[in-house]
Design a binder for these strands. Structure first.
Length: 274
DNA sequence: ACTCGCCTGTCG
DNA sequence: CGACAGGCGAGT
């Protein structure tokens, strides 16, 4: 479900409710996500740890509990919600952190592609999923990262945008959207694109993410995404290509194409994107 | 660079 | 029933 704008929207909406609060009780199911949830390490947060800060790197949310840091990733279908601790749990709730004021942070993830692990803060920099991340798509040097990667890669440009080791935070929606805004064909070999166009693409990545963030993220027709207060994002109405197969390109009117590459859908305008 | 596997849910 | 879904990583 979530790419950088959705993750950042969730982070921002959660923070004022739980940062500075102590964890009173933890309920963790030993369910296998991308990595298994270890109930013991989650329970170690109860009674002692207060949440010092909530941060984001790429699509990961980092909850700073001092000596420990919780690393959360929402995968395709993960959601973080706040509920009164007495409220009924919806299906696929794998983790519950009850804070001192009775509010519970819950991780719900039907497909279980997410991640929820507790890492000693001292070794966080060496934690593999984070250590491998490239430039943050919102605050990092996307232009430098893309230029460097494009020079030594034989991949299509879209593969680089989706590679979290190059740029962290871009997923299938915003890769399609950034390429559309920059007028670059998704399957164009990265090394064959001029530096000027790569730079323009880097600008488009930042711009589309900023626009989506300002809109509170993208909530598709299935209604999967909403922030901690239940608000849906309204960027879906501003998508230029993603999910618009057969609809007219907003710039030239020719039909948006859908193609499968790398096992995933790619949307683009064959006329505007070269 | 592709394919598949990991899971459940929804839609046509 | 098959196709598909906003992610990622292990294989080949």
């Amino acid at each position: 479900m979530p790419e950088l704008p959705e993750v950042e929207t969730v982070r921002r909406s959660l923070a004022p409710h739980i940062v500075g609060r102590r964890v009173m009780a933890v309920s963790a199911a030993p369910v296998k996500l991308r990595l298994g949830i270890e109930p013991g390490e989650w329970r170690s947060l109860a009674g002692v740890a207060s949440l010092r800060g909530l941060h984001r790197r790429g699509k990961y949310i980092l909850a700073d509990f001092g000596a420990s840091t919780a690393v959360l990733h929402l995968g395709m279908s993960g959601r973080l919600v706040l509920r009164p601790h007495a409220a009924a749990c919806e299906k696929h709730t794998h983790l519950r952190l009850r804070f001192e004021h009775g509010i519970e942070l819950r991780l719900v993830d039907p497909r279980r592609f997410g991640m929820a692990v507790v890492v000693a803060t001292a070794v966080l920099p060496a934690f593999a999923p984070l250590a491998g991340l490239g430039a943050d798509a919102l605050d990092g040097d996307v232009e430098g990262a893309l230029l460097a990667a494009a020079r030594r890669s034989r991949s299509p440009i879209r593969a680089l945008l989706l590679d979290q080791r190059v740029v962290a935070g871009v997923g299938n929606i915003y890769a399609s959207e950034a390429l559309a805004r920059a007028g670059v064909h998704p399957l164009r070999q990265a090394a064959a694109i001029s530096s000027e166009r790569v730079a323009r693409l880097a600008g488009a990545v930042k711009a589309v993410l900023a626009d989506a963030l300002a809109a509170g993220g993208t909530t598709l027709a299935d209604g999967g995404f909403s922030d901690a207060s239940g608000n849906e994002g309204y960027f879906a109405v501003k998508l230029d290509v993603y999910g618009r197969k057969g609809h007219p390109c907003r710039a030239c009117g020719s039909p948006i194409r859908r193609q499968v590459a790398g096992g995933r859908s790619v949307f683009y305008c064959a006329r505007c994107q070269r």
